[in-house]
Every structure is written in C-alpha cells, then in structure tokens.
Design a protein around this nucleic acid. Structure first.
Length: 167
DNA sequence: CGCGCGATTGTA
DNA sequence: ACAATCGCGCGT
C-alpha cells in the first residue's frame, strides 16, 4: 500500500470526504480504517469554521493534506484533514475509525484514544513517516446523511458512513 | 475585556 | 435529558 499524495487531498472537499472512506489511517503505532467522515467547506457552508476567516479557521484556507485539530466543548478534540487548493477552504472531519479490536465511533473518541491533540495541528500528512493515509484497493459502500451536531446548513447531506457489513 | 456557545460524550 | 468544561469569536 502506498501513501496518499497531495493530489488526493486537493480535490473538492465532498469528493475527498467520500474517497477517505475505507482508507487506512496510520498514526504512530495505530492503524485503522476510516468508517465515517463529514465535509465542511467555505463561504457556501454556514456550519463550517471557514464560513468566516479567523485565526482558527485560517488553516482551512491553506494547502491540502494538512491536519486541522480543534478543541470542542472544552474537553474533546476533533481531527480534520484540510482539502482543496490554497485559497479554497475545506476540511474533512474524521468521525469514525475501525481499529483491529476497537470501533471508535465519534470524533472525540478517536482523538482521545489515539492521543491526537492541538500539538498535531498543522502537520503535513503527505511527508511524515508516522502520520499519513494509505491507499485502499477496494471501494466501500456508504450512505450520505445530514451532518451531526450542527444548527446551520442542516440540509446538506455531507456526512458519509460506510455500510456496516463493509467492515 | 466579558460572555455565550459549540463539527461531543457519558451518565441519568 | 443534561452536565462537564474551556477556547474561540464577536460585541462592547
């Protein structure tokens, strides 16, 4: 299996969110299959941090393949991957990860279990040897649903979940 | 500088 | 159904 290149992340955020399903995340000693994602975009997505450019959301406006981690509700971190070309904000929230023996369903659980926090913000997934994504040969089946936990732009079907029998 | 609230989760 | 818990973003 080979590491996913910059070109994989540079596409439209919704495409990347779908394509990430079934891919393998390698982080330190952990290896897991991505089972659930959500897409967040720029000015046309009111639910996104990048709806307005702030110090926090600035990273979403930058180049693709970069890790975006933020704290939520004062006690959990959310792990995102920046997409699209520079100047076009977008990021995919990783919401589900299947490890060998544990099913991490929920962005907070993933970060807590793997130990991902604010220190990982800004890491380039295309150049590291212990933090990257691996290509997958097989395509997985999935469903599109509304995103979780938001109050604006709730009608966008930008949450993608791998069918349970696929993993 | 103060204040309300959030891309969540475990517990009741 | 709700508390835990704190950094961010916006208004003053």
């Amino acid at each position: 299996m080979k590491k996913l290149p910059y070109s994989f992340y540079e596409k439209h955020v919704v495409e990347v969110a779908k394509d990430l399903l079934g891919k393998t995340l390698v982080f330190g000693g952990f290896k897991g299959i991505i089972t659930e994602t959500e897409a967040y975009r720029g000015a046309d997505d009111q639910a996104s941090h990048a709806y307005r450019k702030t110090k926090r959301s600035e990273i979403m406006f930058g180049p693709a393949g970069i890790v975006y981690v933020y704290m939520i509700y004062g006690m959990y971190y959310c792990f995102n991957i920046v997409t699209e070309s520079e100047g076009n904000p977008g990021a995919v929230l990783i919401r589900g990860l299947k490890l060998r023996d544990i099913n991490l369903n929920g962005p907070g659980k993933i970060c807590k279990h793997l130990g991902i926090d604010k220190n990982h913000n800004g890491i380039d997934l295309t150049t590291k040897e212990d933090f990257y994504l691996e290509d997958a040969t097989a395509q997985v089946k999935f469903k599109a649903t509304p995103r979780i936990g938001i109050t604006k732009d709730v009608d966008k079907l930008w949450r993608f979940v791998v069918d349970e029998r696929e993993y």
